Simulated scan of single mutants.
Amino acid sequence: MKIIRSKTFTAERAWGALDIANMNGITTRLHWTDQPYKWHVNDGEEVFVVLDGQVQMRYRENGEEERVMLEVGDIFYASVGTEHVAHPQGVARILVIECEGSV
């Protein structure tokens, strides 16, 4: 049993994470960042939930780059093969659920 106050979580570096749970190879992690990530494709599906801040999610669909601004409470689902990159607008805290060891 644990309680996590996500609004007060910080990390020593961008995309630093707090491991919350590993359920049969599916990890749940709380990330803190103030910098963009990198373009990537996960090894499986990914659920990306903005808990604090704003994140511009960029993704490629049919060879075209798309952008969407994610606000607190918004969820981005990356299906297998979705190339994407997160660009926080200032400080953001993000809950990520994905296969263990994914990029």
Results as ranks from 00 to 15, higher is better:
93 R>W: 01
57 M>P: 05
88 P>A: 05
28 T>F: 11
28 T>N: 10
79 S>H: 03
60 R>V: 13
2 K>W: 05
38 K>I: 08
10 T>H: 07
39 W>M: 05
88 P>N: 09
67 R>S: 14
67 R>L: 11
3 I>M: 12
101 G>C: 07
74 D>A: 05
46 E>P: 03
102 S>H: 10
92 A>M: 05
8 T>I: 09
35 Q>G: 01
37 Y>N: 03
21 A>P: 04
34 D>Y: 03
44 G>C: 10
54 Q>G: 06
17 A>G: 03
79 S>I: 00
86 A>M: 08
11 A>N: 04
74 D>E: 08
16 G>H: 03
50 V>Y: 08
48 F>D: 00
18 L>T: 03
99 C>K: 06
24 N>P: 08
47 V>G: 08
32 W>N: 05
95 L>M: 13
51 L>S: 11
77 Y>I: 13
9 F>Y: 13
40 H>K: 11
94 I>S: 05
99 C>T: 08
70 L>C: 13
44 G>I: 01
84 H>G: 00
11 A>D: 02
47 V>S: 09
69 M>Q: 14
93 R>S: 06
89 Q>I: 10
57 M>I: 13
48 F>H: 00
24 N>A: 13
41 V>D: 06
81 G>F: 01
70 L>T: 14
6 S>W: 09
4 I>V: 15
36 P>L: 00
48 F>P: 00
67 R>P: 07
93 R>K: 06
78 A>R: 04
57 M>H: 10
32 W>F: 14
74 D>I: 05
45 E>S: 02
